[in-house]
């Protein structure tokens, strides 16, 4: 059994028509089935409006299925009695670093999740310190959140998720609003967490980030149109372009320079060129 099992998921937003009645709106997610294994690192990519963010929010029950189901570690997200079991297993980090920090002081914010779970004070302290060390923000635990840079705030948000000791963290475009330094730092934290066995699901627009995952899920118009390893995906250039995605720079260069299709990283290209002499 996989850790997360999504089956025939449909998420439809209702809208209010001119007469004030609720009418069915767009199907943001339209018949998605996929399994996510424990400990894996999965990237979800697609254009704006492809449904990737909606899918992400359904993985911990923030959005509930209109049809189909999402089962996390045996718990159905529609089962109200176990919604906290789902959310404590699947943490989430959002795009805007500013809008997800609840408390003014760094360590109090990280404690927010464990406090909601009703954990003992001493244990919360341990978890908060541990989570802050994980993201390299332990030295700043007494600081005001508004004094931090965007990248630092995002690390606090990640610490807030880690402190709940989840088995999986969903990152919903965590680097979209950061500068290159902040972006690199967040990516290295995600990879460390995955190496420690936490299942990571990364929603992103940056192919250079997606290619670091074990598996890339491509979405378009609410449907999964591709589910491949990075190497498989980026060897199929017409498909990537039809999905409205960008090619990672090395692949773009391979295409432009007419190099063989099996090269997918800068290092491989360098080897190929050196060997051709």
């Amino acid at each position: 059994m996989s850790f997360i099992e999504v089956k025939d998921l449909v998420i439809e937003f209702t809208k209010i028509d001119d007469e004030g009645n609720e009418v069915p709106g767009k199907k943001a997610v339209d018949g998605v089935s996929l399994n996510i294994d424990k400990g894996s690192f999965v990237a979800v990519v697609g254009m704006n409006g492809s449904g990737k963010s909606t899918l992400a929010k359904s993985l911990n029950g923030l959005l509930l299925p209109t049809a189909g189901s999402v089962v996390v570690d045996g718990f159905d997200t529609r089962d109200e009695d176990h919604i906290w079991d789902v959310r404590s297993r699947v943490g989430m980090v959002f795009q805007n670093p500013d809008n997800q920090i609840v408390s003014s002081i760094v360590e109090d914010d990280v404690a927010f999740g464990p406090e909601n779970l009703g954990i003992e004070p001493d244990e919360i302290r341990r978890r908060v310190d541990d989570a802050l060390k994980h993201v390299g923000m332990y030295d700043q635990k007494d600081k005001g959140a508004h004094m931090l840079s965007g990248g630092q705030k995002q690390r606090i948000a990640i610490a807030g998720a880690i402190a709940m000791r989840p088995q999986c963290i969903v990152f919903d475009e965590p680097t979209a609003m950061l500068d290159p330094k902040g972006r690199a730092r967040v990516m290295s934290i995600i990879k460390d967490l995955n190496a420690e066995g936490i299942t990571c699901i990364l929603i992103t627009h940056f192919m250079s980030e997606a290619e670091q995952a074990d598996r890339i899920i491509v979405m378009k118009d609410g449907k999964v149109i591709g589910d491949r390893t990075p190497a498989e995906l980026f060897s199929d250039i017409p498909f990537v372009e039809s999905a409205g995605l960008e090619l990672p720079p090395a692949i773009e260069l391979r295409k432009m320079a007419g190099l063989p299709g099996n090269l997918s990283t800068a290092a491989e290209i360098a080897e190929h060129i050196a060997a051709s002499r």
Binding site: P249, A250, L253, A266, I269, A270, A274, R277
Partner: peptide
């Protein structure tokens, strides 16, 4: 430029 540097290092 990053890729070019990697190529230079090898070739």
């Amino acid at each position: 430029r990053e890729i070019v540097e990697q190529i230079k290092a090898k070739a």
